[in-house]
Design a protein around this nucleic acid. Structure first.
Lengths: 228, 228
DNA sequence: CGTTAGGGGTAGGGTTAC
DNA sequence: TGTAACCCTACCCCTAAC
């Protein structure tokens, strides 16, 4: 119905945040016009930027807009990502300053990799176990869930980690393992097709006979109509 | 972590279905605002309605959303679908699977054609007999009378059915044309399968070779890792 | 007019709880 | 385990304010 949605890539998110750092939140049109970001954000409108920024902010504070409305006495600390424009019209700064967005990502990535590396067990931790890793858990007041989710996705994209049945591992021979899995899938499909193929010719013949009969019937019907 | 779930009651499900029949699927806010249903559905949000309708549709067509995604050649079966057996045992509830109001009409049309086709007797059913056809009757709590009446009129207009002395029959031209269309579709499918079949064995062989090579590569890779 | 803030809405993918 | 219920993201619309 609506436009097919395309998920924001980590690159786009970084460009948006960098743009907000440079021009301030609310300056969507300026950010889009800035040649530094326009190549990455060319498929996004100013309204898209506004909506995305809303999602990021709300995700960092309480998880969703719905929740944000529910606890309207939400006194939770401002997100690391949210910026304020000084009334002096001058320097922009983080409301709850830590790092630049890039540094934030890097430190979250490192936390994740550490959590995976130190996880005991053959299969690697799932998302929840990562969130309970001491270092990650210690930052929970910043509502790490969405941040971790998005970084996990990014790390999978760049093939630093692999996700298998909701569990994450450091990628080792990722391409090779994937190739094997794909090849085995291809075998199964091809063999399935071969099995089905045996009946195909017989089916086609039966269908042809049926169609012929049906056409004959239509001819007869039309003749009858004309004869009336 | 998540909210405690509360299951949908049969009353709520019926109110939802009635609401969809009245306002159309996708009109969740209208359904909630309708005083006819708001008392039953007061604890549900528009998103809850949307999710529940999706679960109902998917359960009726293929059992689960996962499966629905797997069969990506999603043949929009718009026929009448048995939904649940009521706890009372005897009562059957039916749902019309429809994505748009247009699809609702299609579903009702199919029901009517089925009722006519399965009617025993030389002359075809009258309007009342159609309304008493099990699947039509099962949806009676949902105001089918007007819907059926208006669709009968439409089907006569487009010459899909004929009305003779208050009785309805399938138009013969329609029946024959439908048979031909079905036969020709079957031919196309069968011949497509036959065409693909020729390559299947070759593909399987190639895939086997590929998998073998890939496994060798993984072995070498692992050996290298150990050697480090 | 164009843009932004912010309210609300729906569809659809993802996740959790049972 | 499978799936019903729930959550989150992306996109859409609208209106007020500027």
């Amino acid at each position: 119905m609506g436009a097919p949605k395309h998920k924001w890539t980590p690159e786009e998110e970084e460009a948006l945040m960098a743009g907000v750092l440079k021009h301030g939140p609310g300056k969507w049109r300026y950010i889009l016009a800035d040649s530094e970001y326009s190549s990455v954000l060319h498929s996004r409108s100013n309204v898209d930027l506004k909506d995305k920024w809303r999602n990021i902010s709300v995700a960092a504070t309480c998880g969703s807009r719905k929740k944000a409305k529910q606890d309207d006495d939400n006194t939770k600390a401002l997100t690391i990502l949210a910026l304020t424009n000084g009334d002096d019209g001058g320097q922009q700064h983080f409301a709850l300053s830590c790092d630049t967005p890039q540094d934030l990502f890097t430190s979250v990535d490192n936390m994740i990799l550490e959590a995976i590396t130190n996880f005991e067990g053959p299969l690697g931790p799932d998302r929840n176990s990562i969130l309970m890793y001491p270092e990650v858990d210690a930052n929970m007041q910043l509502n790490m869930e969405q941040l971790v989710t998005s970084r996990l996705e990014h790390l999978i994209n760049i093939e630093t980690i692999v996700k298998i049945e909701h569990r994450y591992s450091i990628s080792q021979g990722y391409a090779v393992a994937k190739a094997i899995a794909e090849a085995e899938l291809a075998i199964a499909e091809a063999e399935g097709a071969a099995r089905e193929a045996e009946n195909a010719e017989a089916k086609a013949e039966a269908a042809r006979i049926f169609a012929k009969a049906a056409k004959k019937a239509l001819k007869a019907y039309n003749a009858m109509q004309l004869g009336k």
